[in-house]
Write a protein that binds this DNA or RNA. Structure first.
Length: 243
DNA sequence: AGTCATGTTGACGA
DNA sequence: CTCGTCAACATGAC
């Protein structure tokens, strides 16, 4: 389910509940739910893969992990993680991680790290990247402190687009290559968003779960790469290994 | 039926 | 104390 662009779609769908008062909260989430009863939602925000339901002095943070789902004005029989009921309507989340962020969100989040945020800063991302010269690029791209919202699909697609081998070492990449990659992270994420809305996302994949390289017709390699061992799909002919 | 995956966290041991 | 490894969480596609 998640990756930043999908969370933006979720935000679009639930923001109509802004200013609604919470009548009831249910579900198995291990947070103090009662404190939010009769409180008004003052805003919904997102940070990377986080959905934030904002109240006066705290926010409920929801992370859909791999299989999280949500239903608006509807419910299903699988165990409810957290459900909010309003005078008019309800909002239900399943299979997700829920926590509470106390106080001012600005004290917890560097908005410039969120690839989908207006405050996104490629410059800040570059500076943070430079702190990990020995890391593999496939690992660093998934670092949510640097590229919040960037997930495994976006990783594979932007490395393919920019012709960089996922096992390339950050410090060995030419400056220009890194800058192109960082730029592509945001550009591709917004294309992802549009395709996801049109339901054509998977049809647009060039690398992720693909078997043949569209550029050179050679087979793509599937390998669990880096420290995190997430799936990578890449073309050893088109994507240069900097090491 | 078993494996695996758009992800993160916390426990545990070296 | 810090680092790496791994299980846990839990759903659905193949």
């Amino acid at each position: 389910m998640p990756e930043g662009p999908s969370i933006l779609i979720l935000h679009e769908e639930i923001k109509k509940f802004t200013n609604q008062k919470v009548i009831e909260i249910s579900g198995s989430a291990k947070i103090d739910k009662d404190r939010f009863i009769n409180q008004k939602i003052i805003d919904f925000k997102t940070f990377g893969k986080h959905t934030l339901i904002c109240f006066k002095d705290a926010a409920i943070r929801i992370h859909l992990l791999m299989f999280g789902t949500y239903l608006i004005n509807d419910s299903k029989s699988t165990p409810l993680k957290i459900g909010l009921r309003f005078n008019k309507g309800e909002l239900n989340f399943y299979t997700c991680a829920v926590s509470v962020v106390e106080g001012n969100l600005n004290d917890h989040y560097d908005w410039s790290a969120d690839i989908m945020n207006d405050k996104w800063s490629a410059k800040n991302a570059k500076e943070k990247l430079d702190e990990f010269p020995k890391a593999m690029i496939c690992d660093v791209l998934l670092d949510q402190n640097i590229f919040a919202g960037l997930g495994n699909i976006i990783k594979n697609e932007i490395l393919y687009r920019t012709k960089i081998h996922p096992e390339s070492i950050v410090g060995k990449l030419p400056e220009k290559k890194i800058k192109t990659l960082i730029k592509e992270a945001r550009v591709y994420s917004f294309e992802f968003l549009e395709w996801k809305k049109e339901n054509t996302l998977t049809a647009h994949w060039l690398a992720h779960e693909k078997k043949i390289c569209k550029r050179c017709n050679l087979p793509l390699i599937k390998k669990h790469t880096g420290k995190n061992k997430r799936r990578s799909y890449f073309c050893t002919n088109c994507q240069e290994l900097y090491k």
